[in-house]
Amino acid sequence: MSAPVVQKPSTPPAASASASAVPDRGVSPWRDAWQRLRRNHLAVFGGAVLITLSLLCVIGPWFSPYGYEQTDLYNTFSPPSFKHWLGTDQLGRDLLTRLLFGGRISLMVGLVATFVALTIGVVYGAISGYAGGKTDRVMMRIVDILYALPFTIFVILLMVFFGRNLLLLFVAIGAVEWLTMARIVRGQIMSIKRMDYIEAARSLGLGTPRIIFRHMIPNILGPIIVYTTLTIPGVMLLEAFLSFLGLGVQPPMSSWGVLIKDGAERMEEYPWMLIFPGTIFSLTLFSLNFLGDGLRDALDVRAAKD
């Protein structure tokens, strides 16, 4: 899941570097960053954990003898055993299966909602930065104001009122998390706006959208990738937060937030119901943060830390 994020961008610039007939020693910036990232053990660890977890979540449920909603009322709250590796819950559902299945949902929410945030943030920031002047001032002032709003509250209201469906969850979370991305993209766009190749593109008569999306965005992919990686944990946290309040993913569906909620309610007698989902969720956030930090150092993104 995270592997393509790291590797994909390294192909086109690397290819063009070799095409420009520079003999051996030429190292493209992407390859350089990739090598720096590989030396960062924590980031590599984070990446490895994420890939493993994602694979487990995607493939695991197929190999499980139990369904995620298959109940077994003779086996409720059974502690971890060979039959149920992580035990069962109040309805006798296999916790491991629910954990992996819930992982699919949580990771999917993380990715889709981040994608929504990414799209809004990049487009908004790019337009604001490229337009400059009054448009820019107004657009950024709006972002400033939105920053100060109690957005979580609106997401809660939306979820309560419009029947808690997954699609709405994606949109609602995405609509909250785009602000930082917009600011970062705007700053980056402003810094390359006056460069010669942009002037050249403009004098060739290219349209504004083409200049922005073909010529500018690819050149600021670094910061975008870094902040995407750092947005995912925030998004997943918000999903779990909503599910914990009973507003996100609804049972019998499972997500890490739902499992943590179930576990927290019964941890006194059945602590494994909280410990396993809690650990996996925290481990995922941990890995994403380390990977994001590593990417930031590797791609040398200097914009304000945190």
């Binding site: 909280l274 969720f281 941990f286």
Partner: peptide
């Protein structure tokens, strides 16, 4: 502090209750 950032309140809270209260 990295641990503190990554363990959400709704995990930390119940765990603290489990340890210190129960």
């Amino acid at each position: 502090s990295m641990v503190g950032i990554c363990v959400p309140t709704f995990v930390l809270g119940p765990v603290l209750v489990l340890i210190f209260a129960i």
